[in-house]
Design a protein around this nucleic acid. Structure first.
Lengths: 200, 200
DNA sequence: TATTATTTCTAACAGCGTTAGCAAAGATAC
DNA sequence: GTATCTTTGCTAACGCTGTTAGAAATAATA
């Protein structure tokens, strides 16, 4: 008797509807205005049903945050693997990061814009830990080639991805759009400047 | 008869109490948990009194945001005036920006952490416009010395203060604190790298 | 002192995240 | 097929948020 299976199937279907509705609302109205009640309306269930699928609202946001980090990490690895030399890898990864942010603004704003980046999350949530590891290992490789391969790795890591974050954060929100070529060029100057700084 | 004067004096006194209480709450519990009712409790008045002094909650936050930008701008100018050469000025300004963020975390988190940076604000609120102008003019001076003094000024401006923003944003929140010398060094490397990038 | 203007408060509205407890529907056993 | 039990979903509430209409209390004026 496939009754239990059907139940599970239905439960996962509702879960999917919750996530789907949440995403729709977020993309249409922004993450800030997303509410449990709006989701409940959208999926045509009452509010408490949502709490039988997710512990709380934050858990729903975390779901997308994890998704975003997984996607971003994939793109970073693609960029990395397209180069051999560690310095060039960092530049390629920066471009990948940049492109991800602009092609997935919803994800990026959730991941870094509002809520809870860094801090505990980075080490507790596996998807974020992976992201961190990729970043750190790449920076380490670049530093290893430099003349002072010491314990500055973590600081360099922070600086590198802070630059990326800063570069992107401001322009993801930005209204007055500049030519893409110009943006790309500025990114390249900034990152290459920093990578040169690491080497020195 | 100084009755009107006394009334104005009292009104400004209440206004001061509102801001003072808001600041106290924000520093003790964070901006996120600041609420109108908490302020009302603190100043020992009812809620609507606050609305006779500020249009809404955002207006109270804006008050501190403006204060923060004024303070930051002052520090930036101090840093700038301590150097002659435009490139060195940028480096000094970066240090000033860095120090401001760490010595005034409450301000910085309000100004850039949550809420509404960039976008319309930058051009509508005078205090922010001044900040923007100082930044742009400094970058312009640095670019004028370079070999390609064209319309990239604004993009460079964005990149420069994006780097600053990113560098600071992540570490203002950061729990595990690194030695200050290390932080300073990383900042210097990053900014000098970028300034060198501008020159190229 | 009576009237008017001002200040302040109470109470509400509409929304939020969250949860306790009850009603309805489903599955199982007889 | 009916009765029992389990699961599912809902109603209604709690306590919080920003905001505001309208009444009450206070202060200033005539």
């Amino acid at each position: 008797m496939g009754v239990a299976e059907r139940k599970i199937r239905h439960k996962e279907q509702v879960r999917g509807a919750i996530l789907q509705s949440a995403w729709k609302i977020a993309t249409e109205e922004g993450w800030q205005t997303l509410s449990i009640r709006k989701i409940a309306d959208a999926i045509e269930y009452s509010v408490p049903v949502i709490y039988s699928h997710f512990e709380n609202k934050e858990a729903i946001l975390l779901e997308f945050t994890k998704e975003g980090f997984t996607l971003l990490t994939q793109e970073l690895l693609k960029g990395k693997e397209s180069e051999q030399e560690p310095g060039c890898q960092l530049v390629k990864m920066a471009k990948a990061y940049w492109n991800f942010a602009f092609e997935n603004k919803e994800y990026y704003q959730l991941m870094f814009g509002l809520g809870m980046p860094a801090c505990e999350m980075v080490n507790t949530v596996p998807e974020m830990k992976t992201f961190t590891d990729v970043m750190i290992s790449s920076i380490s490789a670049a530093i290893a080639q430099s003349k002072n391969p010491d314990a500055e790795v973590f600081m360099k890591y922070h600086a590198y991805w802070s630059i990326l974050h800063g570069l992107v954060a401001i322009q993801v929100i930005e209204k007055s759009v500049y030519p893409d070529e110009l943006k790309q060029k500025v990114l390249q100057d900034a990152i290459e400047g920093f990578v040169r700084g690491i080497g020195g």
